[in-house]
């Protein structure tokens, strides 16, 4: 009993902070915050060997062609283009052209907000209506991946902007819609209805080699 009077019987907790600091620094250094973000794409199903490839009888005006050669030079609708970022507005104009709308797409046109209606060009040499419009993107085997993603980014960006405009949100907000949430899902479906994201990625040519 005499012992307990001498000094306090407690563990010295001052170095605890130091130990915790050490562990903290270890985890800080080793952490790589997972980056599970990127450009999403759905590949077409594999061709059925028993069936001949379907004939493409689409009108040329309904196809928006983007070619990139092995020197990373762009050819858009048979015209050279230097600035990738111009693609986005070109694709938007192309998709929302309504050159020769049928009954369904007229209803679609009428459902668009006024700000989008004013962008419609009605150029007879561009796409008939969004349901027909296809963006064809072809690269060479020697095209750099950086260029490929830059172009794909612009093409998808054009569609996301259209979808966003349609339901009155920005493209960023549209992409972040949570499809598990019924309210968001309804918005998502509404925005995409009648305007499929038709980006066709053709097999690359072999001119440039690898």
């Amino acid at each position: 009993m005499a012992r307990s009077k001498r000094g306090e019987a407690g563990v010295n907790s001052a170095p605890m902070a130091d130990i915790a600091f050490l562990l903290l620094i270890f985890f800080l250094v080793t952490t790589t915050i997972a980056t599970n973000k990127g450009l999403m794409l759905q590949l077409p199903p594999k061709p059925d060997p028993n069936q001949p490839p379907p004939d493409i009888n689409k009108n040329k005006r309904n196809i928006f062609t983007v070619l990139v050669n092995s020197q990373d030079r762009l050819l858009v609708e048979e015209q050279p283009l230097n600035d990738v970022t111009e693609l986005r507005s070109m694709v938007k104009d192309f998709v929302l052209n309504f050159g020769k709308p049928d009954a369904d797409s007229r209803a679609l046109y009428n459902s668009l907000p006024n700000s989008m209606k004013s962008q419609v060009l009605r150029d007879p040499n561009s796409s008939d209506h969004p349901g027909e419009a296809v963006v064809s993107f072809k690269t060479d085997r020697g095209t750099s991946y950086e260029m490929y993603t830059a172009v794909l980014d612009e093409l998808q960006g054009a569609y996301y902007e259209i979808y966003g405009d349609r339901v009155g949100i920005s493209a960023d907000e549209f992409r972040d819609l949570d499809r598990k949430n019924p309210e968001d899902l309804a918005k998502y479906e509404e925005a995409r209805e009648g305007i499929p994201m038709a980006i066709s990625i053709a097999e690359p040519s072999k001119v440039g080699g690898e």
Partner: peptide, 9 residues
């Protein structure tokens, strides 16, 4: 067929 090109913002 679902692919994602991982990229940075």
């Amino acid at each position: 067929r679902k692919i994602l090109y991982a990229s940075i913002k």
